[in-house]
Amino acid sequence: MSDQDTLTRALLGAWRDHAPVEAGPLAGLLPDAEAAYAVQDRVAAESGWFDRAVPQHWKSGGPTRESVLTHAPLPPRRVWPSPADASREHFNLRLIEAEVALRLARDVTPAQAAALSHEDAASLVNAMCVSIEIVDSRWREARTAPALLKLADLQSHGALVLGAFRPFEPRDWSRQQCVVRIGNAEPKSFQGTQSLGDPAWLLPVWLRHVTRKGATVPKGTVVTTGTWCGLLEARKGDLVRVEFEGIGAAEVQL
């Protein structure tokens, strides 16, 4: 059995059994990010998550513009419109990221993705919405699992909740305000805290990743673009609501 076989089986079992597995013994099985992406693809194929060449929903991002951005396709059964009820869904943990998701206005070919600059990226987008990424893990170590194992595990994806889309427009993202409400805790406010400074900045990197094997990314594909609030802890039973001034809101019942 190959190393990728071993990791694929471990993740498939964790999804199926709702039981995280120990990452430590598997930590050395992935030599690089491409191997982690290959495991993503194999888990998706064996789970039958996608019925199209390019999945419709993605997560992408990184801690800084200088870091290597990471990407993951999101299973449709775990992408929900707001308001969402996730009270009957299984999660090993519930960590909350407040984000802005972007929707492509047109198809993007590999050649177009290769030539795309950060300055021109926003021209590809026709809509945006508030999104809530529920972070979860199939690894028992969760937060401390090796980065490549997290990447193989859909970059710790749990579920994505999408608010109503509205037309995309240029903004001063450094002044953008965001409020996160989790259960009965005091609301937390943030301003200009998106890690890349502009949600659209990652589009060239993400699109080159998605098109690297020759696929065209269809119009209407959605990518959520990174947290504004870090990772906030939530519990089963909490109502989570995220509001971005001038963009909208999203909420999910856990």
Rank of each mutant, 00 (worst) to 15 (best):
D5I: 05
T6D: 02
L7H: 08
T8E: 00
T8F: 00
L12W: 00
G13Q: 11
G13F: 12
P20Q: 02
E22A: 15
A23V: 03
G24V: 11
P25Q: 09
G28D: 03
L30R: 11
D32I: 03
D32K: 10
A35M: 01
A38K: 03
A44L: 03
W49R: 13
V54P: 02
V54E: 04
Q56S: 12
H57M: 02
W58Y: 15
S60N: 14
P63H: 13
T64W: 03
E66V: 12
V79H: 02
R88T: 06
R94V: 11
A101T: 02
R103A: 07
L104R: 04
A121P: 06
E133I: 03
S137E: 05
T144M: 01
P146V: 09
P146D: 09
A147S: 11
K150N: 13
A152K: 04
A152T: 04
Q155G: 00
G163D: 07
R166E: 13
P167F: 12
E169S: 14
Q177S: 15
G183T: 06
K188G: 09
K188S: 13
Q194N: 14
P199H: 01
P199D: 04
P199M: 00
A200H: 10
L202K: 11
L203T: 08
W206T: 03
T211Q: 02
G214R: 11
V217C: 01
G220I: 04
V222S: 03
V222Q: 04
T227W: 00
C229H: 08
G230V: 07
L231W: 00
R235P: 00
R235D: 12
V240Q: 08
R241D: 06
E243A: 12
G246A: 03
I247F: 11
I247E: 13
E251F: 08
E251Q: 15
